[in-house]
Amino acid sequence: MTNTSANPISRLFNMNTSGEKGGRYLPLWRQLILQVVCILIAITVLFPIMYIITLSLSSSGSRPSTLQLIPTEFSLVAYQQVLDRPTGNPVTFVELLKNSLMLSLGVAGVALMIAVSAAYAFSRLKFAGRQFLMMAVFFVILMPGIGLALPLFLLFNGVRVTDPTSGSVIFNLRNSLVGVGIAMISGALPFAIWNLKGYLDTIPKELEEAAIIDGASANRVFYQIVLPLAAPALAVTFFLSFMGNWQEFVLSWLFLTNPADFTLAMSLYNMTGKYATEIPWNRFSAMALIIASPVAVIYIALQKQIVGGLTLGGVKG
């Protein structure tokens, strides 16, 4: 059994793929029953995925009259149309993508930069009021996102620049990507602090202690020892934040009214529901798959770390 592990095809048919040793012999009839169960589960999992893949590869914009789960044609017309003009608004896909990317990357980056020193202080330093300040951070995490959306909406709406001659509003923080970004940081920052602190807690302290003995200043310890050691944690926290921001919808839909500022997630919402009557389903499906792809790729690449991080947070609550 061990000598076949190099060949992927023989590995596919290898009885024991999980690397477990020993165990009972699985009778053929049981094996077949379990295979049937597994395949049935796989069909339910694949059902919606195959459905939109098939729809997205169809060249016809009409609504599907019969159920089709396996693509019969491979047309990229829908993808082309979506990239050309995704919504009814005169906004190109590139502009939407740019808005989404700026918002997701910007918020994740800024939140991470502000969070990392605070996470380090919470994880390693002792100071008066530590417990209280940590509760304050947790307090914000506990608040459902919508709970902060309203006051930020009202406060940002007051920040505006008007043209002194005509009196028309030139800039309103509430109705701008910058405003949405700042509002999103209010959720991303406490999450990043909490998440990073959880990771930093698992890094052994010995290196830092040795550096302190050698007389390194606190700043040197932080920049030259902690930051390099925490690099993987920083990356995972950044990507977790990015994935959340990429799908962010509540704040942007509440704040923004100008189609030029819209994000991909907002456009997808525009293509569904009561607005969807004029949007062909093949284009909707193509858009959905395009939006899903970056998150899916990151998730598959970092699956272990992400699941580990999520459950760690859950356990430590």
Binding site: I114, A121, K126
Partner: peptide, 20 residues
């Protein structure tokens, strides 16, 4: 160490103070 800790927390708490 106390002062360093507060210094390290300062940016995060200023931001959270204003927007949370």
């Amino acid at each position: 160490q106390q002062n360093i800790a507060y210094l390290y927390l300062l940016p995060a708490f200023i931001v959270m103070g204003v927007i949370a």
